[in-house]
Design a protein around this nucleic acid. Structure first.
Lengths: 222, 222
DNA sequence: ACCTGAACACCGTTCAAGT
DNA sequence: ACCTGAACACCGTTCAAGT
């Protein structure tokens, strides 16, 4: 039993999105060992997750540096890689929400993003502000989409809507069933409120943000 | 023992940010009753949190509708109210990350935001896109700031930096201590990377986003 | 050095039993 | 109707004991 065995088993659990298997006890069971055996190779559970994040981020990487190219295109490509990974592996998002992620691959990624921003003409203050805004949007999107996916399988305790065979999910049907007098916009938009957090929506929102950041940068320089 | 007693006790625990007290067992202890007594008045734990969110959101409200006024000013005011609440009460943020929040006050808030966007000239598709982007940013900011606050008190298992009396926190000192050859931007920006998620940063990022959304709206209409 | 057994101090929730 | 005791099926982690 090695540290790598543990990380590998944990990553398999993360891949299958089996949060039940992603426990010290569940991990140990899969490795044919007791839970306490893990602590000889690993400090605690967060360290296992950090190891996975480091591995995944290294896999994700960043877009190729295309000098003279469009910094926004680079940022879209790089940001969407992280977004896809966070949406696919909710366990990693949970870790991001608990404590700052400071594994080497995360620092390298941050360095690369800041460097592209700097070379795109952002000054120091706006470099940080732009990075913060982009990272914030990415994490928030993954959080909303993950919550949506989890909510699909679960009906709230005091449900407003009855589920039918035609509409077996709660959340998409909620908006359509509200009184139109009180919630005219929700009812009118209800068909599309279902697709609240799609890849296309992430893309459009990200473009709007990058445009906003760029116009702020240009304003300052003129 | 009433449903309101339970909600009130739970809200007191959320206010004190005592996540330990925010358990069925801890709540029951505070109310001088066994944990199982709660289930006579409440379906499950999420229902208690939903009750709190409904109460808090109703308190938070939205900005006054100022007809002929600036929709961006309204949006900033309304969005910052939610941001402040989510940062102050991390337990509510945790609930937002688990499942979509569909309590009445949340629906009313969504309706109000969509209505302001519509009257500001956004078409249906862009109404939803704008709402999604703003909500995404707000949630992501609260998640990053909450993670940062939690991280201040905790040093990772494999710490890169030693803590001293002069710098008793881990994360702010991490960036400054990296090798400047590998991470030039992180080291150069390290003094300001500490204040990654301030109210001012939220404000600036939000303005950039609203500007980006506005210019996309205008582009389409011309 | 590496693993185990038993324990500590917890979770949310169910269910039969009491009043 | 409302509350309790005991139990179920879990958590992460510690620590003394074994090999």
């Amino acid at each position: 039993l090695t540290r790598d065995d543990i990380t590998a088993a944990a990553f398999r659990a993360v891949e299958r999105d089996e949060l039940d298997a992603l426990t010290m006890r569940g991990l140990a069971r899969e490795l044919g060992v007791t839970a306490m055996a893990l602590y000889a190779h690993v400090e605690n559970k967060d360290e296992i997750l950090d190891e996975i994040i480091d591995r995944v981020l290294r896999d994700v990487g960043v877009a190729d540096v295309d000098d003279g190219g469009d910094w926004k295109a680079w940022m879209v490509e790089t940001t969407e890689r992280l977004q896809r990974v966070l949406v696919r592996y909710p366990a990693l998002l949970d870790r991001y929400c608990r404590r700052p992620v400071g594994v080497p691959a995360a620092l390298e990624r941050m360095e690369a993003v800041l460097d592209v921003l700097r070379r795109a003409g952002f000054d120091d203050r706006r470099c940080i502000a732009a990075y913060a805004t982009i990272q914030t949007y990415t994490l928030g999107f993954a959080a909303l989409e993950t919550a949506r996916q989890r909510g699909l399988r679960q009906v709230p305790a005091r449900a407003v809507v009855e589920l039918t065979e035609a509409s077996p999910f709660y959340w998409p049907t909620l908006f359509a069933s509200l009184p139109a007098s009180e919630y005219p916009n929700l009812v009118r938009l209800s068909p599309d409120l279902t697709s609240f957090t799609t890849d296309a929506q992430f893309h459009d929102g990200l473009l709007a943000i990058l445009d906003g950041l760029e116009s702020e940068r240009s304003l300052e320089q003129s």
